[in-house]
Every structure is written in structure tokens, then in C-alpha cells.
Design a protein around this nucleic acid. Structure first.
Lengths: 111, 111
DNA sequence: TAGTTTATTCACTATTGTTGAATAAATGAG
DNA sequence: CTCATTTATTCAACAATAGTGAATAAACTA
């Protein structure tokens, strides 16, 4: 098959948070969004580590934010999904859908 | 945080293969099913390792098959999902569904 | 320049994934 | 019975992903 492995669970979660957030995606909000959507608490360090990996894979890009923070604090590093990243998430979704489809015991749940 | 992590991608894939296969689930067929459904080739060793972990977590159970193989060959070890395992897969599905829902950029795909 | 604030990076450990090679257990031929 | 063959599982070692708390960086203010 294709020479890549599925995105890890956290990586996928981060990608989806990025897609949701759009513009204002940097460390803290990303982490908060993950917690809000998945109910899962993840240390900031984990999120940054995942973002780093995703960037290395070309699924995410980043740029420094304006150093002009209202009152103190280091400049932000904004992240966003690349088109490759979006494609990857789509493929992942398709693959999981395909795996789920036809498993009878999973039927009858809210979608 | 919550005391469990999401199932890994391979673990989830293995669980789904087990649910599909029902009775005749042991090493080779499981591996074949994964390849058939996901297009991903996985070494048998990987599958066994995942099964081992899943059993430790109580999501899968196993029993020795009849030593009566038609023509040679070691006895099989059959695996099946426990009720906890089924529950876990359901929760995982729900969680991912929830994450996907509302991400506009993922819209407009075959389901 | 020191203190405070906000944010990112680091160092380290744990869990999960991966593979090829080794081992085990069964059968049948000779 | 013993050896080759077959089928299947287990092992050992390494790579990738996940996860955390502490350290560092960069900005602002007094």
C-alpha cells in the first residue's frame, strides 16, 4: 500500500482541531479545542510534539505571529493544515469509514 | 485526565477485523482481513503484538484451537473481542464521529 | 534591570508499531 | 522413530508516537 502509516490518534485529533480553529490556531487554543471536543486532557508538550511531527511530514505549516502581544508574553506560533494535511485527514476518514462499514455489532448508534 | 488513551490505530484496526471475522479469527485470517479492508499490509508479528496488548487490556480473549489440523501445522489460537472490547470500539467510533462533525472542510464526501 | 506574563522548547519515559528471524507443534514419508 | 515439511505463534530489537513536568524564551511594565 501507500508507504505511510496512519496518523496517530493524537495527530489526527490535532489536525481536526486545526481545521476547526482556522485562523487563531496556536498552542493553547489548540489544546483547549482538543479538550473541548474530545473530553481528553492533553499536556501542551504533547500537542507541540505532535505539531512538530506533523510539520516534518508536511501536513501542517507554521508562522510566527506579531510580537505585539497586548500585555507581555512571547510571540505566538500559528499553525494551519496544509492541503496535503487536509487530504490526509480525508483519506484517514475514508479508511476508517470503510473499516466500520459492515461491522454489524456496531449498528444502531447515534451518528 | 481520563485514565485511558485512545486505542492505537493498529489496535482499532485489529478489533474491527475481529468483529468482522467472528468465529474463525486467528493470526493469518486477521492479517488478511486487515489487508483486504484497509489496503495496508501488516507483518504478522505486528498483528500478534497488538493482539497481545489488547488481551492484556481485557479487550480481547483467546483460546487454543483443536490440535487437529488437516495436514500438519501447529494448533491455532483463536481470538475474539470481549464485551469490553466491543464497548471500547463503540466509544472510539463515537469520539471520532464527534471530532469529525462540524469540520466543514471535510464535507461533500461519499459516506 | 528585575519581575510578571504568555508561549514554546527540552529532556526523558512509556506505549504502540514494525519487522525478520526463531521456535513450536503437528503430519506423513521413509 | 526421526526427519523434512507445513502452519502458526513467539521473540528480540528497534522505530515512531504519546505524554509529562521543568526549563527557556520573548515580550511587557514598573
Amino acid at each position: 500500500m501507500s508507504d505511510h502509516t496512519y496518523l496517530g490518534g493524537l495527530e489526527l485529533t490535532v489536525m481536526l482541531a486545526l481545521l476547526r480553529l482556522g485562523e487563531d490556531a496556536y498552542g493553547v487554543p489548540i489544546s483547549r479545542e482538543i479538550e473541548r471536543q474530545s473530553g481528553r486532557e492533553v499536556a501542551l508538550g504533547s500537542v507541540y510534539a505532535a505539531l512538530e511531527r506533523l510539520q516534518e511530514k508536511g501536513l501542517v505549516s507554521s508562522h510566527q505571529g506579531e510580537p505585539t502581544a497586548a500585555r507581555g508574553g512571547r510571540a505566538k506560533r500559528y499553525f494551519r493544515a496544509t492541503s496535503r494535511g487536509l487530504r490526509e485527514v480525508r483519506e484517514m476518514r475514508q479508511a476508517l469509514m470503510k473499516l466500520w462499514r459492515g461491522v454489524r455489532k456496531l449498528r444502531g448508534e447515534a451518528t
